[in-house]
Nucleic acid binder design. Sequence first.
RNA 1: GCACCGAUGGCGAAGUGGCUAACGCGCUGGUCUGCAAAACCAGUAUUCAUGGGUUCAAAUCCCAUUCGGUGCUCCA
Length: 493
Amino acid sequence: MATLQLFNTLSGKVEPLTPVGTPDLRMYCCGPTVYNYGHIGNFRTFLHVDLLRRVLLQFGLTVQHVMNITDVDDKIIRNATAANIPINQYTAKYEQAFFEDLTALNIQLPEHIARATECIPEMVALIQQLAAKDIAYRTEDGSWYFRLARDPEYGKLSKKDLENITDGARVDLDEYEKDAARDFALWKATKPGETSWETPIGPGRPGWHIECSAMATKFLGQSFDLHAGGEDLMFPHHENEIAQSECASGHPFARHWMHVRFLLVEGRKMSKSEGNFYTLRDLLLKGYRASAIRFLLLSVPYCNQMNFTFDGLTESTNAIDRLRTFAKRIKTGTFPQGRDESIAAATIKAEHDYTAALANDLNTAEARAAIFDLVRAANTAADHGTLHTENAAEILRVLTLFDAVFAVLEDHDADLTRAALAWAEREGRLDQAAPELLATLALSDADIDALVAERTQAKKTRNFARADAIRNDLLAKGILIEDSKDGVRWKRK
RNA sequence: GCACCGAUGGCGAAGUGGCUAACGCGCUGGUCUGCAAAACCAGUAUUCAUGGGUUCAAAUCCCAUUCGGUGCUCCA
């Protein structure tokens, strides 16, 4: 069984990722702050964590995977206050939307979902531990801060020297109360009108970093195998998590740290002001398939910056079509009995290359290439009649391995698009949907089957004008007809 | 401003000292087809941002420049 070699931000080296102390690989991944719909940058991270998880499972490990939901923070409080609703009502909507999006992207759910608001006692206990060592201190207004001067290892993840980062210190209303400018908030005192919790350390709400320390420890213990998140979280978020957790417990926190790099959109930084900021739902309404979005976001390895483009989405759509067409051919085609040695060798090579690529720091681009090499070799063989039944079975097994990780071969795209349209209708956003999309989905499968049957009949009577008219009409509505030896097929483009 | 990362064909992208620079998409020609589609075959970067240097040998190492990104402040 292969072992995953994964870059570790903490050591700066590629190292094997294996469970220590328990049979399960224990991993914690920073989840969303549920104050809005998730954008494609968010999902690049969640997709690569999903890929990691699927690779670990494929490599024979079991995992205990925790993801947090940040359901209390400044933005949530601000937006809920503006909407004049309680924060839990505000976050419930976006949390539900987030899980719908995970489903659309075929992202597996972690074993544990941890909501910040449900783990307040654990956070308070952690702050008390730090307070007992005089590492946490309380300011006059009732907030608690972490005394950075007490952590000599601070900066080891992001390779920062404390001396060099003080100039960028945050200017904050509370700053005058802190002992040192870089000390960060563990607990924020109640401000008028804000949600707060009555606790043994006083009323207030959690600071940003404390929830991940508390929840990771709650579900995985003081030390665990892997902590992952977007590259921007490395500092200060993850650095602060390490500081809090290790100073409190006296034990190493996560052994291995993985950071997913940012994406660009059409070569530019994604931002609302650039006008290139997209949520998953935006793309579905434009008519792009969920599977194509998944495949594109996974096609560039996590450790590289990727350029997300609409041409890339079209490319991914076409690439998936080719894979699906191929899978169908292998599953349903008729082949001569027996086994061809050269195809068998190509199949074994593809499986080997595919596995080696993923084991090598999750090189998804090379893993993809290995599968496409197999597709070409097998299609050529099938065209020449040298692909045999045993070859088909072996190829199908490799395709199954591939799809257990990439998860794009099963076609749920039309249903997912319909669901997105139904959501847009409820939200009054139907005007954002592409017109061609509405035309395509207006046709039911039965309608299409009827037209295809009519065309087949027209062809039999050599009425090609009528047959072509039907085909062109359907094509204009996004339905592609293919005649083959085994009969007529159609698919939605 | 300081620190770090990146720049590979029409587009996306792998490769990080040594076989003809993967793979996908696109495009061109061919096979098949009533015509298409799918599939296959052939072609599609003498060259890896630019300028120097190291080496028998560089896309891969070093220096400089240009451009893009990230962190230093909320951010996947």
